[in-house]
Amino acid sequence: MSKIKSHDEYVFQLVANIFLGLMLVVVLLPLWRVFILSVTPFKYVDNSFGLFVNPIKWTVDSYAQFMSHPSFLIAFRNSLIIMFGGLAINLFMTVPMAYALSVRSLPGRKWLNVVVMIPFLFNAGLIPGYLVVTGMHLQNSFWAIIIPGAISIYNMFIMRNFFAEIPMDLKEAARIDGAGELFVLFRIVLPLSIPIMLTIGLFYAVGHWNEFFTPILYLNSNKLQPLPVLLRNILMGLNTNEFVEYDTFSQVSVQSLKAASIFITMLPMMMVYPWIQKYFVKGSLAGGIKG
């Protein structure tokens, strides 16, 4: 950037980079600790702050234990269904709405924006929404998790603003060629909107993957519970029954089982987001604030 590396510049870089390094440690250290605990075998000895792997005594037993948990595969499958099913419905509902509302010449657009804005600004709280879901008898199915959040108003706004910024002449040219609106949407607008689609798609997907409260609220059947609910049960010790008489207890330590289940639950998200990271800036900038 600068031609002469002055003393000032040098010190400054040092401070900035040290700060960044510090942040790196602050974020990674707790996660590293979780990882180390997950491969530490059960032993009653205080470990060396749990920050180093003992090369002789590490084990993946706790991972095996968690993954052979009778509910693990089902929970994992449920999480995938909720995430992909939810995402499909999110996009199916959000994209057309955002696109239609991005058209400035749409008659009644002002009123429609008001209609959208009111529930965005005013939230009636947990119970009334829950009565809607139970009133429609959606409970005990994935629909109860997916449908009520089909459109996040915030995400829809971000998408709308992004669509609105796509140059009009491109859309107009296509329309004059006689193309239908769906054609314009799919062939002109969406290809130009890949960054926003990926960002919003990720927002939605993460939301679904991490959801634990609505499943606790609405899903009864044991075959419907997603991964975070299983993790919560393990973390809070809800799964160890007072009256267990037979040999159902695990062979690994509670700690390392917890650590392994934490790690497995967060792994998919960890693997996905870095690939989409470069689009975040565009995605989050288009949001919220009206220009």
Binding site: Y130, T134, Q139, I216, L217, Y218, S221, N233, L238, N241
Partner: peptide, 23 residues
């Protein structure tokens, strides 16, 4: 058969949800 959650508060949550909607 549906197995209820093992935590008491989660059990109450499920029953309440079902009761509120008369299901």
């Amino acid at each position: 058969l549906t197995l209820q959650p093992s935590s008491f508060t989660d059990q109450d949550t499920k029953i309440s949800v079902a009761a509120a909607s008369n299901t």
